[in-house]
Amino acid sequence: MFGFFSSNLITVVDGIAFGVLLFTIALGLSLVFGVMDVLSLAHGSLYLIGSYIAVSVSTAFTPTLGFFVLALVLAVALGSLAGAGLSFLTRPLASRGHLDQALLTLGVAFVVGDLLAQQYGREVRTVAPPSPFDGSVSVFGSTYPTYRLVIIAVGLALAIAAYLVIERTKMGALVQATVADAQMVRALGVNTGRLMTGVFAVGAALAAFGGVLGAPILNAAPGLDNRVLILGLVVVVIGGLGSVAGAFVGALVIGQVQTLGVSLAPSYAAFLTFGAMALVLLLRPAGILGKGRLA
């Protein structure tokens, strides 16, 4: 038993790195769904925009920490703008149900994907990790890239921050109340329009932030937007739509499924992610931490 753990410990660590990266995408997706009832299929595009910002910054400058932070700041700024834009685009469809929003946001995703491919080409683009973290360290006796430890640290900090904002601030309470019962919040005289735009902007900024953060390990290429989107959807569905803690738990679960799971059952690797999602949905249809809002 101990042998099993020691030989897989590094894989578990890597699963956490991957999981917290997924969390940056899933959190926005989940909040936007919870607050606005919008399943935004353009969320993967926001991630990819972030990755390409990292590409632009790292080709223009040397990959120092300062410029990496600059890329993060740019991504957050552009991401929030894009999110606010998406919120205006989807607003007129509020009464028309998920499928119309899916059609719209998928249309936006196609357009953005094409424009990015025109701008950056269809070849894979790589981003070097910021220079202080460009090497490897020894973790549990294995060589491990330092940058992935940075991802874990940043991702966990982000998760704690998100938790505090949602649980401890007035804004967070409003968001939670809107997830639970949007009509009630509106009836209380709250400007839900501003709240929704804000949540969409924050969610989009998070995805773009994740795009920069993930670029040094996942690169940037056309099609990555789709894969990230699908993983994000799997995470939020597993965790429970509209819940911060759910997105976090779901992200960690999928992170482990994609690393530890793959390592333990490589022949079934292709089935694992969707198998896990189907299993969770069948056992707990509202997700691991969902509150039973099924419809």
Binding site: S142, I217, Q258, T259, S263
Partner: peptide, 11 residues
């Protein structure tokens, strides 16, 4: 669907 090769590299 594979971006992260860590589990395979570990293997």
């Amino acid at each position: 669907q594979t971006e992260n090769f860590q589990p395979f590299l570990s293997q």
